[in-house]
């Protein structure tokens, strides 16, 4: 108990090293620890293996906690969206929901198709023709995700009361990306054209997205 007096006198541990009153146990302890550690070569196979296997265990245990943040099975397997397009007039755009996100279905007018075809591919940031972005023989039906490829806002232009921008398609009011009548990026920060989701015509008047 000699140490306690000394300790009361000096709170700082680093100074304890010089305190003569407890030099002996001090030495004993470091000696003891050193002895224990010197026997254990750092490269000792067993210790490396033990640390390694513990590390593996921790990494393995992390897998479920990372995996659980993926979309759950009932979300990722959500069924297709079927849309009756027979009531959509030329020039009209409707928004439907697929995978929790809106999709534009646009019935292009003759003029819009002509406008889209008149653009030279070399003028485009992401060169694609209207033909490539629509189904064969159905070039008047433009189906795109209503999600700006810049940072995910919903572009305006689907409703007649909304601005369509100088290229007549859509304009994203968040950061000013303008899309043409084929949904292609023409101006602003968006890197690519509006994405065309997987879809097919299951009858002349019904499309199925997904």
């Amino acid at each position: 108990m000699k140490n306690s007096e000394a300790k009361n006198g000096k709170g700082d541990m680093s100074k304890d090293v010089e305190g003569h009153a407890f030099k002996k146990p001090q030495a004993d302890l470091s000696e003891q620890t050193d002895k224990a550690l010197s026997g254990l070569d750092r490269r000792d196979f067993l210790n490396v293996a033990a640390v390694g296997i513990a590390g593996m265990g921790v990494c393995g245990a992390a897998i479920p906690f990372i995996a659980q943040m993926n979309p759950s099975k009932d979300v990722s397997e959500q069924s297709k969206t079927e849309v009756d397009i027979s009531t959509i007039q030329p020039g009209q755009t409707v928004k439907v929901v697929w995978r929790d996100q809106p999709v534009f279905i646009r019935h292009l007018t003759e003029q819009e198709i002509t406008e889209a075809n008149a653009v030279a591919l070399s003028d485009l940031r992401d060169p694609e023709t209207l033909e490539q972005r629509t189904k064969a023989g159905k070039t008047n039906w433009l189906v795109t995700m209503a999600v700006c490829t810049h940072l995910g806002c919903i572009p305006q232009g689907s409703n007649s009361s909304e601005p369509r921008g100088e290229y007549g398609g859509y304009i994203c009011s968040c950061h000013g990306s303008a899309f043409d009548t084929a949904g292609r990026i023409r101006r602003g920060p968006a890197p690519t054209n509006l994405v065309v989701p997987p879809y097919r015509f299951i009858s002349p008047s019904v499309i199925s997205i997904g």
Partner: peptide
Amino acid sequence: VATGLSVVCCYRIWRKL
């Protein structure tokens, strides 16, 4: 395996006392 290994390591560490 991991527990077995930790038993061996523990034993070796304490044996050196």
